[in-house]
């Protein structure tokens, strides 16, 4: 699908709001640039309009990096699950599907398969974007089953280590001993290392990281999407702390992420040999 179908009819240009005109004139799409990326953020129209998350929320920043890194946004469908990210999805100029909580990988599977059947000649990317409660806790079964089935979808987990949106319950990704408002005695078990489970379950590309370095996030998103498109499931676990739930101020999210770069979210990267070969080829072709 080309972006030409989004061209506003000239008769209506004068009545369309500025943000829609901007999307046509200043946003980057796969047919307006060879390689999208975060370097364009200051100069181009972002696919995320103003959002309603808390001031200084690292999740909002991470989503901006993800959207800026999508290789083919006009042919991408994002599937999300209930959580703080749900508040941002109405502001995204992409196809997004809000699934039932935890079902996101099952829903994405169906969408991807139908898209491949309906548009065999067009590369369509399906990206799952959900929190740790939906990915590692309630939706763990669906997440892993999609990896087992080798679905061509990219799963991105915004891991804030808590059910933040509902007041602070512990999730599978909460570290041992962590106390929250709704988990007053502290978590009794270890944090689930989802990035390792992803490898065991058949992902071709798996990473654990924080959103402290925009370039690194964008690179990982781009690579993961290409690997999912041509080989099989990929997984990114990105630490986006809930500053409210862990008692930080609006300007302290970045510091928290940088500190965790060396601890629970120390860089982990797995790339299967086939994926490595593919990425090297894409780099040679200038697509990465």
């Amino acid at each position: 699908m080309g972006t030409h179908i989004y061209k506003i009819n000239p008769e209506f240009r004068d009545i369309m709001p500025k943000e829609i005109i901007d999307l046509e004139e200043n946003a980057t799409w796969s047919d307006t640039t060879d390689k999208r990326g975060i370097k364009e953020l200051p100069e181009t129209k972002e696919l995320l309009e103003e959002h309603s998350l808390c001031a200084g929320c690292p999740e909002a920043a991470a989503l901006r990096y993800v959207l800026a890194a999508l290789p083919k946004p006009e042919d991408t469908v994002i599937v999300n699950s209930t959580g703080c990210t749900s508040l941002m999805f109405p502001h995204i100029a992409l196809h997004t599907v809000h699934s039932l909580f935890g079902n996101q990988n099952a829903v994405a599977t169906g969408i991807k398969r139908v898209l491949d059947w309906r548009f065999p000649d067009i590369e369509k990317d399906v990206v799952v974007l959900a929190g740790d409660g939906a990915t590692v806790d309630i939706g763990l079964d669906y997440t892993l089953q999609s990896f087992f089935r080798q679905e061509n979808i990219t799963t991105i987990c915004f891991d804030n280590e808590v059910y933040a949106n509902t007041g602070g319950q512990e999730s599978g990704a909460t570290p041992k001993g962590q106390v929250f408002k709704m988990a007053p005695t502290g978590k009794k078990f270890e944090k689930v290392k989802m990035w390792e489970l992803a490898v065991t379950s058949g992902c071709h590309y798996s990473m654990n990281m924080t959103a402290s370095a925009p370039k690194a996030v964008a690179k990982a998103v781009r690579e993961a999407i290409f690997v999912a498109r041509y080989l099989g499931p990929t997984f990114l676990n990105i630490y986006t702390p809930c500053i409210l739930e862990i008692g930080l101020n609006a300007n302290e999210g970045l510091r928290e992420m940088k500190e965790q770069d060396k601890e629970r979210f120390a860089a982990f990267k797995f790339v299967s040999p086939e994926a490595e070969e593919l990425l090297a080829k894409l780099k040679e072709e200038g697509r990465l």
């Binding site: 030409h4 179908i5 989004y6 061209k7 506003i8 009819n9 000239p10 008769e11 209506f12 369309m16």
Partner: peptide, 18 residues
């Protein structure tokens, strides 16, 4: 369906609506 010029009919309709 008429705001965007995704086919000839939509383009024609836009002129007529104006």
């Amino acid at each position: 369906q008429v705001l965007y010029g995704y086919n000839e009919e939509a383009k024609k309709k836009a002129k007529l609506i104006k």
